[in-house]
Design a binder for these strands. Structure first.
Lengths: 245, 245
DNA sequence: CCGCCGGATATGTATAGACATTAGCGTGAG
DNA sequence: CTCACGCTAATGTCTATACATATCCGGCGG
């Protein structure tokens, strides 16, 4: 439990400040999923305010899905939800299993190197080392190639990744479980298979593939960049959503 | 202003009931965007409760993006936001214009007919008539074909569509502006261009295209089904999002 | 006719207290 | 030792009140 040393934005109202303080603790990983946040009466004492004020702050965190409350037990940091109602970050093994198919996976390459200008993401902002882990792997369902994945992981953001066994666990699944993220961007395109993808996916060159690029941030820091080529005939992305969050 | 004749769910708490009542008025179109909802003191009187209770109800509608409040002026139904922070329903003319390109559009076909079993959506649940408007059109940017669109509009849900001039306004843009929706589902795939798409988009057969299928509902009722084939080399979908709405 | 100013008004925030509800936990009975 | 029961601590809801703050609107003066 670290000292309350957050940047402490000049939030307008007290309940916003309380909310921001708690949110910062959660997003920083200081309070991991499952952690019990202080009781209302403790926060009341800490901030010297009425319970309604604390309640309003926590209620907005509940609305945002960051916190879950249980009577008598307390309020807890929610488990990160892999499925947002919107377009989510798919965990391929889980998706394949959900369709009742057998998932398999091969690690094709693993290299530790310095980031350079040709990389599709700029890792240099965040650290001088700029070390990245470059991985490539192939996901299959029922023995049939499904997706070729090429990934960069920032070792400045995720030093533990250097020791992870990506021959056993796909890097996407590992990251979803070990690294909280605050923002992501998908870029989805249809492309013809290049030589490398054609060979890995066992399709003719030029066959339609779905290219899914994703950048993921934690705070302002790039965590990972991934590009996945899916066989066009074997995968589709589905997103169900409403006009307002 | 219709009589309060909603289904009136057995909501647990008073502020939830107030919220649900207002939400129902908004989603039904009874209170259109821009409409001023009753003042807090009016709702207080109507429900015989304290202002904090009304306030809590309206605050949750603000959080959901359904309502905007202005001091001294009152609370208003928010304009539907075309861009949610997530994957939104793209309005192609606007997207093309935003890239600084010249948008053009041709209506290729328009037919009024009965829905049948071969349609990718089941329109039969909602009405006996099952009449649909079948449209096809081509979107271009700088004179270059961008997307071939095939669409079904339920005339039971949107009778006004029968009179709309889809030679002048693309059906997607018209619908976004005229019909509120409560839920949508995207299905995104990479496919090789079929004969029809190849000709319209002026690409070789089998060239990679992004297929975007979308079903849109209002309440439980299907409003429209659309399938768009984008040239793979001319379009990509971008979605930026956070773990929780 | 235009612009400035002040009051009225609706929302924004916060308080202190009250009662309801639920579920964790310890205790006592079997 | 185990199970059931009841106490109690936590959240859930609501009230009545207070003051702060932004802004629309009308009126007054130039």
């Amino acid at each position: 439990m670290t000292v309350q040393s957050q940047i402490a934005e000049p939030a307008a109202s007290l309940h916003q400040r309380i909310r921001a303080d708690i949110e910062a603790r959660i997003l920083s990983g200081d309070w991991p999923p499952g952690h019990r946040i202080p009781f209302e009466h403790e926060l009341m004492a800490q901030y010297g305010c009425a319970r309604m004020t604390v309640n309003k702050a926590i209620a907005s965190l509940v609305a945002a899905g960051l916190v879950e409350r249980r009577r008598r037990a307390g309020s807890f940091v929610a488990q990160p939800r892999l499925h947002s109602a919107m377009l989510h970050i798919p965990d391929i093994p889980i998706e394949v299993a959900a369709r009742g198919e057998a998932y398999s996976y091969v690690l094709l390459g693993r290299r530790r190197r310095l980031a350079n200008e040709k990389d599709p993401v700029d890792f240099s902002e965040q650290s001088e080392t700029r070390e990245v882990l470059e991985l490539s792997c192939l996901h299959s369902a029922n023995g049939r190639p499904l997706a070729l994945e090429e990934r960069l992981i920032s070792l400045a953001s995720v030093p533990e990744a250097a020791e992870a066994d990506f021959a056993a666990t796909p890097p996407g699944s590992w990251l979803l479980r070990h690294v909280p993220w605050t923002e992501a961007e998908h870029r989805i395109r249809a492309v013809g298979a290049n030589a490398r993808a054609a060979e890995a996916l066992r399709v003719p060159r030029g066959a339609a593939c779905l290219s899914l690029e994703r950048r993921t941030w934690r705070g302002g820091e790039t965590v990972t960049y991934v590009r996945q080529f899916f066989r066009g005939d074997a995968y589709d992305l589905v997103a169900r959503f409403s006009p307002q969050g």
